[in-house]
Write a protein that binds this DNA or RNA. Structure first.
Lengths: 343, 343
DNA sequence: TTGAAAGCGCTAACAG
DNA sequence: CTGTTAGCGCTTTCAA
């Protein structure tokens, strides 16, 4: 009668378990704290009562108390994109394995969302924020640091004090790509990029162009849209339509490369690598598909992630910029060199 | 001198802001609580002080107090897979827009991880758990419910009291696929599926076979591997190697379909749709790529997600099973019918 | 509209 | 090894 059904969620608390087991609530806490000292018998009693009552430690409360949330924020846009999705999959898997909890913050849409994302991370007292897209505001970053939060920027060239900036050595890869095309005997070498590239992607372009200048070779540049398959399709069409149709092209991402290959094949009847050599970047799953068989650069994903985790669990906040070599993956989208290599 | 640098993270608390602004800590709380009554002047003072001190509400504490975390768990495996990634991208985006926070739990690897995932969700007092892969243990589900947690199972056929089970109408799609192939004039119709399919995917197969039986048509079945491009490649190769090489095939996912198309094209020099009609399911981004141009079924993603959100924010826990029609997307991987349609 | 007091569920520090 | 005490930072009564 007087028992009112409370609208408030009724959860089982440590004190309930303690009462049931006939011990103090602290013993309950200790039972669920690795490394705490409880006698086997107390432990057993607690575990049994917890099982019966359906008790589960409230990590909101324990996090608050210990000021350690165990949460790591992943901030990213366009997470449906193959390379991004792979990154997030591996990050979340390893984070999980390391006992961390991942909070995914999707910043697709307006750019200001990166700020909101960071704000959200701060209010949950996230232990670290790993930023895969966009750049944070330096003043907000300070708030992060003063809350003991770590910051990681992946594949961003901006330099950002107090954070780990990590990514592939884009420039070196660009150079390698150019030289590979040159050595494959390409006569008219092209570069295709999105007109909306991130700083990391621009570095690939830079490296490529630098190597071209050094070799005294003129490069055909075609640029369009945002980094995507569609942009590649458009660029490829423009490229193949030119008087001086290129016979070798470096695409700054695999998605663009797939578009270029399809434009050549489906719209012009041209084949890769016989008519056009193509090199991409990222080594997305589709690069391995038999319809593309794309020669590309594999991002050093594992190394990046390992370093991230190490950084997130390390004590000292500092600044570090790390460039990891991207592995060149030879498949079959670049013409084989028929003559013996010089020297 | 006696000022020791505490290793404990030093965060700015509401009481600090209160002191700085010359008001009570409660006023600070109210300033950051939408709809609470604070005078404009107090509010302004608080906001200013908060800005200066770099204060951000601790949501761990407020969640604990209000027993509302605002967190929704997304439980999924193989999140790098195109369809899965798209799902997660859209879910997280809309969740974010609805003011919720998404916790991503990657269950790739052993199957038991679904249990661990749910356990984690419970301990963070997640408001809902949306399960995209695997099925939870019923007894654990009860713990979820008693903690006021909502449960959603996407594209799983198991029926699960107390939860929302939602997904496309797989069976109907399977039937439609068969009829489309039949009407396209295919003489030898095949079905390809992974040998490791989920219950939802199996329904597609069932619908397809049912329609075949009704039409009195024998179907060539080829099954292999886990749901992936590679499996499609293998199945396609086997299919094209047969004496009675099929001229129309329904693949239970687009990934398999892409593999089948590539096997036919790259390994046998066969073209789609001239030599082989192919229908897929999911409408992944690659289905639209010009190299595939795949006729397929678009998952009713938007509807599924809207329903999820509605469910997660609704008060009454109950059981509901919803099947939404999958939209048939005509592209160019199915032979056009040359004769006028009967009737 | 404001402040004082009580408590969300838990764990750290201390004593026994 | 165990229990008591005192908070973690916040919000919610309640009274002014």
């Amino acid at each position: 009668m007087s028992e009112k059904v409370s609208s408030r969620k009724q959860q089982v608390r440590a004190v309930d378990v303690a009462r049931h087991a006939g011990v103090s609530r602290v013993s309950v806490s200790r039972t669920f704290t690795p490394g705490a000292s409880v006698s086997a018998s107390t432990r057993a009693k607690v575990l049994k009562s917890a099982e019966i009552l359906g008790y589960h430690v409230n990590r909101l409360a324990s996090s608050l108390n210990r000021s350690e949330s165990g949460i790591v924020a992943l901030i990213a846009a366009e997470i449906e994109t193959p390379h991004r999705a792979t990154m997030i999959a591996e990050l979340s898997e390893k984070l999980q394995a390391a006992g961390k909890v991942t909070m995914l913050i999707n910043t697709s849409g307006y750019e200001e969302r990166v700020q909101d994302a960071l704000l959200q991370a701060i209010s949950f007292r996230t232990e670290a924020a790993i930023i895969l897209s966009g750049a944070p505001d330096p003043s907000l970053a300070d708030t992060c640091f003063s809350n003991g939060m770590k910051l990681v920027l992946i594949n961003r060239e901006e330099d950002f004090p107090g954070s780990l900036q990590i990514g592939p050595d884009n420039k070196a890869a660009g150079r390698t790509a150019f030289n590979a095309l040159l050595r494959a005997g390409c006569q008219r070498i092209a570069l295709s990029n999105s007109s909306n590239a991130t700083s990391g992607i621009l570095e690939r372009e830079e490296g490529f162009l630098e190597a071209a200048v050094e070799a005294g070779v003129n490069v055909i540049c075609e640029v369009a849209g945002v980094t995507s398959y569609k942009a590649g399709l458009e660029i490829g069409t423009r490229l193949m339509d030119r008087e001086d149709r290129p016979d070798g092209v470096f695409c700054t991402t695999d998605l663009i490369a797939c578009g270029v290959i399809d434009a050549a094949r489906q719209r012009f009847g041209l084949r890769t690598p016989e008519d056009l050599s193509v090199i991409g970047f990222d080594n997305i799953p589709q690069a391995e598909w038999e319809g593309y068989n794309l020669t590309t650069f594999a991002q050093p994903t594992d190394l990046i992630i390992d370093k991230c985790l190490e950084w997130c669990t390390t004590q000292q906040p500092s600044t570090e910029a790390v460039k990891l070599p991207a592995r060149f993956v030879w498949r079959n989208s670049v013409q084989k060199v028929l003559v013996a290599q010089s020297q």
